[in-house]
Amino acid sequence: MSQNNNQPASFELDGKTIPFQAGQTIIQAAMAAGVYIPHLCFNPEFKPHGSCKLCTVKANGRQTASCTQQAQAGMVVESDTKELNDERRALLQMLFVEGNHFCPSCEKSGNCQLQATAYEMDMMSPHFDHFFPDRPVDASHAEYLLDFNRCILCSLCVRASRDVDGKNVFALSGRGIKTHLIVNARSGHLADTDFSGADKAAQVCPVGVILKKRVGFAVPIGERSFDQQPISATPHPMKQEG
């Protein structure tokens, strides 16, 4: 960066000056400065995937995913605008109708990033017609359960298992609207993989797909992370487990 006099490089985000270090993406710099940009597939611990598009911002007037776009000095970025939030809400609504998200009986309710982000974006209805797909639960593993109904294809478990655990337990299969999460075993069952509760992949699901069995309602609904404070005020949503 051709920045003189030791001033750190910075860009402007919704009128606020955000300092950044060379190589940081817009969302990384914003998070470090305590500014929330809505996101689902981004997790600071992993290489960005850029697929959910919730973190889309306008950088110098052009839409771009803030989890993949590197910050540049003097850049003017808009994020918390009606136009972008309307688009984010529509993306959330599409995620809700594509899967089966029955919040009232979901044990992740209140700790779920999809739900909390929808609260943040004032999503009052699904707007679109529901798909109501048929996705059976995989309860084969002794300690963990997979409820595919709630998968939003963020690929965090895929990245965690591949890049951190070195196991490749999960993968996304199919294309377009047929994309779905699969388990790498001939039977397709989690019990037939080397998945373990100690894996990073067991900790990263932002919604209620990968669930430890028999601990579901330890924290009552109403007292969970995003019941206490909105996701925008929660610095590291992934660390809030309940």
């Binding site: 009986s105 044990e107 639960v137 309860a139 669930l211 028999r214 579901g216 609904i221």
Partner: peptide, 14 residues
């Protein structure tokens, strides 16, 4: 049927 059993009490409240 086919749901985790610990979900059921919360479900049937409805």
């Amino acid at each position: 049927q086919g749901r985790p059993y610990w979900e059921v009490p919360v479900m049937v409240q409805r």
